[in-house]
Design a protein around this nucleic acid. Structure first.
Length: 572
RNA sequence: GGGCGGUUAGGGUAGUCUGGAUAUCCUGACGGGCUUCGGACCCGUCGACGCGGGUUCGAAUCCUGCACCGCUCACCA
């Protein structure tokens, strides 16, 4: 749409001066039409009426008459000028070579490696990976980054538990605390096995003070970069992290780089950051020697406006290491994007201000609201969770039922493969299609829905197009596409395809992957309508033009699926 | 108490930044079509902007008050 606005503005400028409108305030009044039947762009003419001393309707028709467009036509309808792009102009917008758009490092997920992935954490991963994919599809050079929290309390508790509790003790504690210690179908995965130790230690903490003191000691040593403790931490969490990454990999979510938090203690950069902050005008020191920045003058409000970055004992805090981490990330990429839960909003703002004090550019951030269960918040510690591994298994099982019904002659192996693709895609799409700032209440029925505004609908359209291609063969090289002859659903489909790059870029810029998901669904609907009205293969054989259009749509659906993490399969 | 987000048909959801013509899409209910290129399809009807003021020719959109929900205000991560 932006390309079209850019193409229309000069001609519209001429028309405005012809009819006598002064200024250029009309430039950002040009908006997208609400109804496609009214064209692509619309210009409301109420404000011109006064200037031209005529009615809005009259202003609209004068402007429409004066407007000479080479990309389409303009018609006055009531007080609006509606502009419709020609099909030939639109089809020239299709399949443009993507230009290189520079590098971006997207940090997402970065969950504490203390237990299996649950559906709350999944929103970060799905959203983050969707951003990664959309940026790649649009021509950015993307690094997908996972920040490994390899020190601090969570990992400390896990390590302490593994070193101090045996199997019997763990199960006794869990039984007593009302947390299920049943063997899950995934108990061979270390994230599922070890989370029980983590949960048990959290329960024991309430009744036995030696847990806290033990953990605190470990954490302190880790913050002093004690190599022995960091190694013990790593052997505690790495198998858990591997299990989590296995789950993510199953969902098609992979990372290019992992950075450990401890790195910034070990290499001394945190210490340097803390020293630099002392020269900030915001710097202050508490009674016991702790250092902070006073952020009140920066507009931070609340009970406390102090941002502590050094404890009384001289050690750093998580947020301090985050500063060093961002400094490091800027050496890796032109742009930085973080995907964070809304609980990190204040923290992120504080870090942004502190970075600014250090002369380091703050990252861009996307926040998302929480996913909660119908009966409350999710918590790994308390065992009130739905694990992703279980959700994915269930999604696959449900999809398998459907696939088996519609494709009884396929091999069991093939059926499972299709069901897995459908289950994964549906699960991801059900998260990605919701606006990030909106809260989600997890319900099995919604999460597993295979109908409606769903991934399988899009996948089915793709499979259908693939099937047609298999029967019709490739487009004849001699065929020349003439979009001007198209009408109805075929024209609507071309129109939809023409906006793909625009929709993708807009979704990236406005950080609304859900809008691109909606575009993709709409494309699938348009393809189904085209399919209904136009035969690629009929009694006379293959219709070259319809095959050409079908293939164009197929390619775009495939690209769209890859950009949102739907697995495009050729048969389902 | 302060800050930040949310509230749109029975359920879910887009649009709010940048005010504009009939508020998007799915589901649901009701009715219809095609069903020899793959029916996990297509078409029609019904049904919603939390409440109250204000600004404007015009408000879901901007301002303001209120209500409800979520997050947050650590020398935790």
């Amino acid at each position: 749409m932006q390309a079209m606005i850019d193409a229309v503005i000069p001609a519209l400028g001429d028309a405005m001066s012809t009819v006598g409108v002064k200024g250029d305030f009309w430039r950002n009044m040009l908006g997208r039409s609400k109804e496609s039947s009214q064209g692509d762009l619309a210009l409301p003419c109420f404000p011109f009426a006064k200037q031209l001393d005529c009615s809005p309707n009259e202003a609209a028709s004068r402007i429409a008459d004066a407007l000479e467009l080479d990309i389409g036509e303009a018609v006055a309808v009531g007080p609006y000028v509606n502009i419709r792009a020609s099909l030939s102009w639109l089809s020239n917008q299709i399949n443009r070579e993507p230009q290189s758009k520079g590098s971006i490092l997207i940090e997402h997920t970065s969950a504490n490696p203390n237990g299996p992935f649950h559906v709350g954490r999944a929103r970060n991963a799905v959203l983050g990976d969707t951003f990664v994919r959309m940026h790649r599809a649009a021509g950015y050079d993307v690094t997908a980054e996972y920040y490994v929290d390899d020190m601090g309390k969570q990992v400390g508790i896990l390590c302490w538990a593994l070193e101090n509790l045996d199997h019997e003790r763990v199960h006794a504690l869990l039984d007593e605390g009302g947390i299920s210690s049943e063997t899950s179908p995934h108990s061979e995965k270390q994230d599922h096995a070890r989370v029980l130790w983590y949960q048990a230690a959290n329960l024991l903490k309430a009744q036995d003070a030696t847990v806290d003191s033990g953990v605190t000691e470990l954490v302190q040593l880790s913050e002093e970069a004690n190599a022995d403790v960091l190694n013990r931490f790593e052997s505690s969490y790495q198998p858990v992290l591997d299990g989590m990454l296995q789950t993510l990999g199953r969902m098609g979510i992979n990372f290019d780089s992992f950075t450990k938090e401890s790195r910034f203690i070990v290499d001394g950069s945190v210490e340097i950051v803390m020293e630099k902050l002392q020269s900030s005008e915001l710097h202050g020191v508490a009674e016991n020697g702790a250092h902070y920045l006073e952020l009140e003058s920066k507009g931070v409000k609340g009970k406390s406006t102090q941002f502590f970055y050094r404890r009384g004992d001289g050690s750093s805090l998580y947020a301090t290491r985050d500063l060093a981490y961002h400094q490091y990330k800027w050496t890796q990429s032109d742009r930085l994007l973080n995907i964070l839960g809304e609980d990190h909003k204040l923290q992120s703002r504080q870090v942004g201000i502190a970075l600014d004090e250090l002369g380091i550019k703050p990252p861009e951030v996307v926040f998302y609201a929480f996913t909660k269960l119908a009966d409350g918040k999710m918590s790994t510690r308390r065992g009130n969770v739905v694990y992703m591994d279980d959700l994915l298994d269930e999604a696959q099982a449900r999809a398998l039922e459907t696939v088996r019904e519609s494709k009884p002659d396929l091999s069991e192996e093939k059926l499972v493969e299709i069901a897995e693709a459908v289950g994964i895609s549906a699960t991801r799409f059900n998260i990605a299609r919701i606006s990030p700032e909106k809260g989600i209440t997890f319900r099995w029925s919604d999460a597993l829905s295979l109908e409606a505004d769903s991934a399988p609908f899009i996948m089915y359209s793709y499979a259908r197009a693939c099937s047609i291609q298999r029967k019709a063969g490739v487009v004849d090289a001699a065929f020349e596409f003439d979009p001007n002859l198209l009408e109805g659903s075929a024209a609507a489909l071309i129109r939809r395809l023409a906006y793909m790059d625009d929709e993708l870029q807009t979704a990236i810029d406005s950080r609304s992957p859900h809008n691109f998901c909606a575009w993709l669904s709409a494309l699938a609907v348009d393809y189904n309508r085209f399919y209904r009205d136009n035969y690629v293969i009929d009694d006379d054989g293959v219709n070259a033009q319809n095959l050409y259009i079908s293939e164009l749509a197929r390619e775009h659906i495939r690209r769209g699926c890859e950009a949102v993490g739907i697995i495009p399969i050729e048969e389902m």
